[in-house]
């Protein structure tokens, strides 16, 4: 993975593969760190074994690298990755933090692109993106709302990729400078 944007896409791909159709992403960042919380309503995990690259449910190959790679990316900067099953819903929640000023930190990359890519890769999945700043959570993107607006003719389907990119880029542009 060349940057954080790739990792984020990969983590949400995990959710989709686990049968999730709702994914909540919360991002908080400053100049010095990047924090991300993701929860889904997929089939969930049974324990911490997902962090072992040689444990995987897939049948196409015998290793799973997405989460171990992200864990390494976070820990290399003095950060962490935690993952757990959500007991009430059976889905999965994970959070990670990485320090952007650390010399081993990966570039953040085009996070806005990640979200427009997700909309195109899995149009039936609802992603809700929140940005946390100064302790206040704001809903930036809601794919369900976007789909409704397209249905009502308020937004044009062919321009939606650009729209998603613009909306999220506005939020992320501070961090993209780094």
């Amino acid at each position: 993975m060349k940057d954080l944007a790739d990792h984020l896409f990969d983590i949400i791909e995990n959710s989709v593969n686990a049968g999730a159709d709702e994914v909540i992403v919360k991002i908080a960042y400053t100049e010095s760190y990047f924090f991300c919380f993701i929860s889904d309503n997929g089939k969930g995990i049974s324990g911490q074994e997902v962090l072992d690259p040689f444990v995987t449910s897939r049948t196409t190959r015998r290793v799973g690298l997405g989460l171990p790679l992200l864990k390494r990316t976070a820990e290399d900067t003095g950060g962490y990755l935690k993952i757990k099953r959500i007991d009430e819903s059976g889905g999965t929640a994970l959070q990670f933090k990485m320090y952007l000023t650390h010399i081993d930190a990966k570039p953040v990359g085009d996070l806005a692109r990640t979200f427009s890519d997700i909309f195109f890769a899995w149009p039936e999945v609802t992603v809700r993106l929140f940005v946390i700043r100064d302790g206040i959570e704001r809903l930036i993107l809601d794919f369900q709302k976007l789909r409704d607006e397209i249905e009502q003719g308020l937004k044009n389907y062919t321009n939606i990729r650009k729209h998603i990119h613009e909306v999220s880029h506005k939020e992320f542009k501070d961090i993209n400078i780094i």
Partner: peptide
């Protein structure tokens, strides 16, 4: 293909 390998 959008597995971890594809994305990377």
């Amino acid at each position: 293909g959008m597995g971890s390998c594809g994305i990377a």
